[in-house]
Design a protein around this nucleic acid. Structure first.
Lengths: 362, 362
DNA sequence: CTCCCTTGCGCAAACGGTTGCGCTACGGTT
DNA sequence: AACCGTAGCGCAACCGTTTGCGCAAGGGAG
């Protein structure tokens, strides 16, 4: 938000606002501005850029320049500047699909952190298509991005700019990964279910293309071992397909129910699939949470308002985005210094609502 | 072409010798490429840009150039090109908040239409803050965007590039507006309720800052008049606050209920507020849809999976985004200010689910 | 009165592509 | 044999800023 202005107490009296009359509306260049001031473009540039720390230009001149720049509404040409300084102040963000809540939340956080630092970002959605996954990094680079954030997206090539991954677990090509503490997350959910008396717990795993799927599952297995809970293979199903919304969860739950196994709780991969599962359970004549408890993941907005409201593990997606962007900016600034850290863990929050209850004593 | 290496005349030392596999190499410039080919940058540029329609370069040369460019992995510098051609192939998109479903959906459509045409876009979220609403257009312009899309966002200054508004109804400064056919939307919902026997219908209006609020309400009044439905002032409440999710709808419904008026249906401003209203109704001991029918708006993903599933009017947000982007591209390509159309209407779809039923005969 | 240091600013060369002209062959005409 | 049209390509001037040097004027020291 800090615009350029003389550090002294009396800034320009807001006269720059009325640029509606013709005359100021033309794209003034630095030469015009300089000519108008009877100075050289060099001096103008130095003043406006604070280059070299007020490079030895008289205070008085500096004020004149700043005032005139505001008056004439001078905006430096982004291309020329970028060309010369080899900086774009722009990063690229790759997401699976921008219209999905997960990506949108993370993007919100990214934007928080970026715009404050005068950075902008390009977004591309690859939709899990291999050609796009491969082509977009190049495209972004051709737009001169100074870094990239990959949200739930594997990047298999190495790129000549810093990369931060959010929930990307490949760790082959990214310098830093922002990820959830899946162990805590699993522990939250499973201790909750155990304490409610659940022993036969069904699991809906994520689609195989989602980076979280494997890590989360490993965490679940470890926590189950710790807690003395058995994982029954017949109670494990996996989401399939790229359809958004609750449909994959519904389908998975139907598959789960098809063999009529005995279970008293479901731990779903995310809230959307939890909702689909609940629909399937209702259809099969079971009541949630009386007959079956359901725990979701993510805490999407509708988790609170659905009926029954959903017990879930909240990921701080917005914070993850902020953290990713802040980290990327640090990497960009610190030149090719070695990655300070390999990964940043963020903590989940457990949200207890009404989709879980004591296990029915069967 | 492949054999001759003009190693004598070639000034650059080429740290790696030949370009090996297409991959990691320092950014090759057009001069290097030209030197490698024993041609001038001019010719290379002409070939790669198809400039002037293959300007009169021998077929054979063209092939050589294209092949070498691919081999050396040449990517023209975006700044230099932009500086010379005064094009950025980038647009700006202003949304209230990127992490909300509405904006994210529209953005998905925008992306569909843009990336196909090799355009990228910057997104900024203004959060209804006046300073950002005023500052972002300038910021975007300083990034050399060639046009802007304002999603549910008023733009009060005039900008020197084409602007397309999605659900922006001010019509003062935009050249084209993409908007829903609110009359059809209102007619869908109200005919449905009327046919179910509802006569005393409550309305939850949108927040005053939402561009849709006024137009929608006007449409509702007109359709009510057409259908012979009375609007009871005590049955009209308005959403307040910028909180996302269903809370504002919940609060509004509480206000509505506070005077214990008689009504058999609610037409909400959007699905989120409909959900909040349903929660409030439940709390007040009323059953949906037995006691009160509820119609939402938008058809967000959870509308289908909540319980009861929500009868709603679907806006084709993605298509609206596509349409906006396609229109903007047309405006950018055509001569400045040629207002082909003033506004583009898109049609809603009525989605009948389980939150509406025959009115209780009181 | 020199000398040298400091202050305040300008020169001109980048940065990497694009493009209006124009130049050189070469083959065909008259 | 002189002429001309055209195919094929290069010259050099941009586009608008930034920046490594360097130059002139003024002032204090010697």
């Amino acid at each position: 938000m800090r615009g350029r202005r003389p550090s002294e107490g009396n800034p320009l009296p807001k006269s720059g606002g009325d640029a509606r009359l013709p005359g100021a509306r033309r794209n003034v260049g630095i030469r015009e501005l300089a000519a108008h001031l009877d100075l050289s473009p060099t001096t103008v540039s130095r003043v406006l850029n604070h280059s070299g720390g007020a490079f030895r230009i008289a205070e008085k001149t500096q004020e004149r320049v700043i005032r005139a720049a505001a008056l004439l509404n001078y905006e430096p040409n982004a291309f020329a500047r970028g060309l010369r300084k080899r900086r774009s102040f722009t990063i690229g963000v790759m997401v699976p699909e921008i219209s999905e809540g997960y990506s949108a939340q993370v993007l919100g956080g990214i934007e928080d952190a970026l715009l404050q630092e005068e950075f902008f970002y390009f977004v591309v959605s690859h939709r899990h298509r291999a050609d796009l996954l491969e082509g977009y990094p190049r495209l972004l680079l051709s737009r001169a991005v100074e870094g990239m954030i990959a949200v739930d997206t594997p990047i298999d090539q190495d790129v000549p700019v810093p990369v931060v991954a959010v929930s990307g677990h490949s760790r082959k090509h990214h310098e830093v990964t922002i990820e959830l503490d899946h162990l805590s997350a699993a522990r939250f959910a499973l201790e909750h279910l155990r304490d409610l008396g659940h022993r036969r717990i069904a699991f809906i795993r994520g689609q195989s293309f989602s980076s979280d799927t494997r890590v989360r599952w490993n965490a679940i297995r470890r926590v189950c071992a710790d807690l003395g809970l058995r994982i029954h293979p017949e109670l494990v199903v996996q989401l399939e397909g790229t359809a958004p919304g609750s449909e994959p969860g519904y389908a998975a739950a139907r598959r789960l129910l098809s063999t009529r196994p005995r279970f008293t709780a479901i731990f779903a991969f995310n809230d959307a699939s939890a909702m689909g599962a609940i629909a399937a359970l209702h259809e099969a004549g079971m009541h949630v949470p009386r007959d079956v408890s359901v725990v979701g993941f993510d805490d999407i907005p509708s988790a609170a308002t659905m009926h029954p409201s959903l017990t879930t593990v909240r990921q701080p997606l917005r914070e993850m985005g902020q953290s990713a962007a802040a980290t990327l900016l640090r990497l960009i600034r610190s030149a090719p210094s070695r990655p300070e850290v390999q990964s940043i863990l963020v903590s989940p929050t457990f949200i207890r609502r009404h989709s879980t209850a004591k296990a029915a004593t069967s």
